[in-house]
């Protein structure tokens, strides 16, 4: 019996030591690949690991509120009053973009054009067939089939759904009043896939379907995707430059904690569905050395992580925004109200 207790104590003790050195974080699934990549490189350089659990934005918010992690991650920015209430500091870490993935025989990537109102009508079940007059008028050169559209959406609560429905709310008053924007909404038509994998798999398998996924997923899974008319009436190609153009004209100080959504930004080059993903930390650090380690990690990522981010089709934060974020870190203090970073 005593032996068992000793072994148990030793195991827990060791586990305690191992965790003390590592940074812990939890939340959004969308930035998980880049956080993992950054963590790998960071561990090689500094020996400090990052234990990030991609449990979803809602889970990340819950965990940082209950202080079980050093930082939480969310795709949906928290509102100023919520940040205030829980004493949280928020800053964006990296950006990404969504594309409408399609599966129509004979239509290649970047051939089919959409507008915001057309996407909204498709997702409301008002446009039912691919050869709808609205679509054929916008795409005169393409041969669109006389087939029913199968709409695919994320069935799990997800920041991706929030960004997509926020975009549809901005371009369609009808969508805004009937369905709205959230991490999960009541889609009037279509089938739900669980996770980005679920949506990609469904779009790939179901003929004449449309879904929304991160650009990186569409590219990795070789899904075909369409172009979307932006606010200036242009059809930019989804790539680094159009994603960065969306971020360039944004006013980051418009909302507390840089909590703006980059959908439908002005600019001829701007990709219309772009969004940042956010980090949440307590302003009053209970474990100052852990919070400091987390900030050091993001500082390193802002300095050295841009190449890794673009390799994975993410968009690094613009340089001037990074400086503003670093300045905001002064808001995280220890017990004696001294900034820890």
């Amino acid at each position: 019996m005593r032996k068992i207790i000793l072994v148990a104590a030793a195991t827990f003790g060791l586990a305690g030591f191992a965790q003390a050195a590592d940074i812990t974080g939890a939340g959004a699934t969308f930035p998980f690949p880049i956080y993992a990549k950054w963590a790998e490189a960071y561990k090689k350089e500094t020996g400090i690991g990052l234990n990030y659990q991609s449990i979803g934005s809602g889970g990340g918010i819950r965990q940082i509120k209950s202080k079980t992690v050093d930082f939480g991650a969310s795709d949906m920015p928290l509102k100023g009053e919520d940040l205030e209430k829980d004493g949280l500091l928020q800053f964006p870490a990296v950006m990404g973009a969504l594309v409408p993935a399609i599966n129509i025989a004979g239509i290649e990537a970047r051939q089919l054009k959409f507008t915001g109102p057309i996407l909204s009508a498709i997702y409301q079940g008002e446009i039912k067939k691919w050869n709808d007059p609205k679509l054929t008028a916008l795409n005169p050169g393409l041969k669109l089939p006389d087939a029913n559209i199968t709409v695919v959406y994320r069935s799990d609560g997800s920041g991706t759904t929030f960004v997509w429905t926020d975009y549809l709310s901005r371009v369609s008053p009808e969508w805004k009043s009937k369905i709205g924007a959230n991490t999960s909404v009541q889609f009037p038509v279509g089938v739900g896939g669980k996770g980005n994998e679920g949506v990609s798999a469904s779009v790939k398998q179901i003929a004449n379907s449309i879904g929304y996924v991160e650009y990186a997923y569409a590219k990795q899974n070789k899904l075909s995707y369409g172009l979307i008319e932006n606010r200036d009436g242009k059809f930019p190609m989804p790539d680094d430059s159009s994603f960065q153009a969306a971020a360039a004209n944004a006013n980051w100080n418009e909302a507390p904690g840089f909590g703006i959504i980059l959908n439908n930004q002005p600019g001829a080059e701007a990709w219309p569905i772009t969004s940042a993903t956010f980090i949440l930390m307590h302003k009053k650090a209970e474990k100052p050395e852990q919070s400091k380690a987390a900030l050091a990690f993001f500082d390193w990522a802002f300095k050295n992580g841009d190449k890794l981010a673009t390799d994975l089709e993410y968009v690094p934060m613009p340089a001037n925004v990074k400086d503003q974020i670093r300045a905001s870190w002064k808001g995280i203090v220890d017990a004696s109200s001294k900034p820890i970073f």
Binding site: G56, R62, S155, D156, G157, S184, K194
Partner: peptide, 18 residues
């Protein structure tokens, strides 16, 4: 047609629910 069950609804939404 697609539908949902109690268990699938919980599996889908629990992570993000507040």
């Amino acid at each position: 047609d697609p539908g949902s069950t109690i268990a699938s609804r919980i599996a889908n939404e629990f992570n993000e629910a507040i």
